[in-house]
Design a protein around this nucleic acid. Structure first.
Lengths: 213, 213
DNA sequence: TCCGAAACTGAAGAATCCTTCATATCCTTG
DNA sequence: CAAGGATATGAAGGATTCTTCAGTTTCGGA
């Protein structure tokens, strides 16, 4: 998508006193709330400020424009997920396919549901401006990480490691996304948590067999 | 999400002369183009009219407001997908799990990629206002259809047919979505087409075994 | 306690955007 | 071919939204 201009997406200034940190947190929280309650279309600076209990001007003290605020929120969430996955990857390195299937799905679900509200809110802005770009980069990184795990698995004999990692990432990311997006019931979440590892493992074993010499 | 008001989402009037049909088609096409080129945020009535080569007023002759236009486009695409899937389901009824895995993924991918541009565009507005509602209903319907197919498969011995159908739908819908959303390369699409059936089949067999008496 | 910096305020300007409607043009049918 | 409905136009009103900035309040250190 050829969007407006990259613009300056960085925060305007960092908080120095503790009260401003509180303010920023309130703004973030308010943004997510408005996002979930009213949708992107009705996410206005005024509404966010109002719900955060601050004035509009305050927001503009930390972010040069609305986009920068949204970007900050998405970035924070993505970073948190990346971090969680990298930690999990570190722990899972060298484990067999079964452990990987279980470990990866658990880590992904944990990361996404830890702050489920934020996750759901973010799906809403993903389409806006150039967030696709950021999300694509994140997915590529995750795919890379998964590929390395697969390569290091003792019982793995995969012909196309990267291809399998790609599919795994698409399934994980996609399935969790569509489920979370529609305000899932507890039953739905349970099912996801129970079946997703099975899906991944079944696929891994199938791909492994198919490529066995 | 508590959104504005359901509003009247139906078209204002139906075309009677052939030229108006052409106009409507042009408006639809333009909407999708603007959506992909500029994103939801910059999708304005003026821009759409301009690209369609008509005046703004013309659009308001067929749709009471912008939302109705977007709704019409989403609805058309969803209906087309539903129809394709129902046709496929009809053909696949009574087939075994392997055929179902192959048939369902192929049908889904065909439906989504037939008008890939429209599909991608729609992912962008999905988050907006009450489209989540419509999409959820569509997904529920599809899940139901898949469940019936699974129940009718001769080699199926699934304990929780609905649960498996739910997962299958989440995987299909989700995986295809995340891949299409990021302007996939031909290689990505090939991979999806090649591996997705394998994923589904592997899962079905695994679930079938796990539940065998 | 007092002062300078940090943080906050919110009215108002500027920019969009949605929608209407009076008017003009194009078909079709009798 | 003339009349009447169907279709198209686009300037303008009304509403919303983003962003700024001059002025006020609060905090922290001296």
């Amino acid at each position: 998508m050829t969007r407006p201009a990259p613009a300056l997406l960085k925060p305007r200034k960092a908080p120095q006193q503790s009260r401003s940190a509180v303010t920023i947190a309130a703004i973030h929280e308010a943004t997510i709330q408005v996002l979930l309650a009213d949708g992107v279309g009705r996410l206005t600076t005024t509404r966010v400020a109002e719900r955060a209990g601050v004035s509009v001007g305050t927001m503009y003290q930390y972010y040069p424009h609305k986009q920068a605020l949204l970007y900050a929120i998405v970035d924070r969430q993505l970073q948190s997920i990346i971090e969680a996955m990298l930690t999990a990857a570190d722990r899972l390195k060298g484990h067999d396919l079964a452990s990987l299937a279980r470990g990866l799905t658990t880590a992904w679900l944990d990361a996404k549901t830890a702050d489920m509200v934020a996750s759901r809110a973010i799906y809403g802005i993903a389409a806006e401006f150039d967030l696709t770009e950021v999300m694509k980069r994140t997915m590529d990184l995750m795919t890379q990480v998964i590929a390395e795990l697969l390569a290091a698995a003792p019982d793995a004999r995969l012909a196309d490691v990267h291809g399998v990692a790609f599919m795994l990432m698409a399934m994980l990311g996609g399935a969790v996304r569509v489920v979370l997006e529609v305000q899932p019931s507890d039953e739905d979440l349970d099912r996801l948590r129970r079946e997703l590892p099975r899906v991944c493992l079944a696929y891994l074993l199938s791909a492994n067999e198919g490529a066995a010499g």
